[in-house]
Simulated assay, not measured.
Amino acid sequence: MNFMKKSLITLVTVAMAAMVLGGCSNKASAASKKTLNIGILQIVPHGSLDAARKGFKSELTKEVKQHDKSITVNYNYQNSQGDQANLNSMAQQLTQKKSDLILGIATPSAQALAKKTKTTPIVVTAVTNLKSAGLVKSDEKPGTNVTGAKDLGPVDKQVKLLTTMTKNNKPIGVLYNSSEENSTLQIKMVKKYAKNHNLKLNIVSVTSTNDVASAVSGMADKVSGIYIPTDNLMASSMKTIGQKARAAKLPVVTGSIEMAEDGGTATYGINYNDLGKQAAKMAYKILINKKKPQDMPVETSHTLRLYVNKANAKSIGVNPDQIKKP
């Protein structure tokens, strides 16, 4: 009996030890896993900004998993649908939830986030000029909790591309939203290029999607082609612009590839999916390599390419094969 009791006690002791060790093992396994919480704030849904967001998410997840498969990346995506009040409240929510990093897509989103936190790292994309937007002290040394990959394209080359498709001496039409800071900056660049190359401009500004169709119709007989910068309101209206421009047989050069896909004729410019991936690589350096936004220079797009919307080109009588890189 004593032997049996001792054996039973030994078995119970071993079983309990195994349970304890198993519990410790599970806790150690759980402790070894880490979760990165990434906030994303986007001003409005449209092709360019959506592409930037998708590029960012896919690239950051891939980079993190290559570094450590046990790390989980959670994304909290907020879209204000163009409403400033929504944008501010969403920025507040994202900063209060103590995200490890927040992505600001487009200038208004980036500015809303920067007003809410001076400590949480913010990476931005689809912002044309971070310094003029008050986000950084300089591109070379931001000096704030903000850095990113800006979307300023080669405006001069884009306007030059448009001139190769125009068929008369009428002015170049320019359509933009004057309430967007990124757009007004590009219009200054268009004016400078036009002055240096003796080009006449017919510049039209709208601040609502409801006015886009009438604006294009009003320009139709007065211009030889239309240039549209990277502009959120215009990007949201590209299908309408494309329809009106095709009816008037006008070439349209846009600031981004996604805008040209939605209704333009061609562009030499940025691919926003690539730009989002570039921003993700910067975010990875902050999250994994412990870099600080304050010390990370703002980047411009690493890739520019010619894109031709062949169907739109043919519809206005332009041979897509004759459209070349400016």
Rank of each mutant, 00 (worst) to 15 (best):
T10S: 06
K314E: 15
V216P: 02
A51F: 08
G263H: 07
N169T: 10
N289M: 04
A279H: 00
V216W: 06
P293E: 06
V212E: 07
Q243C: 00
A51E: 07
V64T: 11
K285S: 13
T61A: 12
L304M: 09
L94A: 04
D50L: 01
K239V: 13
S89R: 11
K69F: 08
A112P: 02
S315I: 10
A114W: 09
A266N: 10
Q158F: 08
A260V: 05
K97A: 08
A220C: 02
T35Y: 04
H197M: 04
A280N: 08
Q186G: 06
K150W: 03
K54H: 09
N88L: 13
T125W: 11
K34W: 04
G173M: 11
K69A: 15
I270P: 02
L135Y: 04
V174N: 01
Q294Y: 09
K27G: 01
N145Y: 05
H302G: 10
Y307F: 15
K6V: 09
S99D: 13
I105P: 07
S236Y: 12
T230W: 06
K69S: 15
G153I: 01
S48C: 13
N232K: 07
D50T: 15
A235D: 03
D221K: 14
S183L: 11
R305C: 00
L87K: 00
M259E: 02
A313T: 07
M189W: 00
P326E: 09
S29K: 15
K244E: 15
M282P: 10
V298D: 05
Q92T: 15
R53D: 04
K150A: 09
G47L: 13
N202P: 01
K285G: 02
G153L: 02
Q78I: 01
N169C: 02
I105L: 09
N74C: 03
N289C: 00
H197L: 05
T164C: 06
S237F: 13
K167N: 06
V174K: 07
R305I: 01
I43C: 02
S109L: 03
V146L: 08
I286D: 07
M234S: 04
A311Y: 12
T254R: 10
M1C: 03
G242S: 08
I102C: 04
M259W: 08
V155K: 05
Q158C: 04
K222V: 00
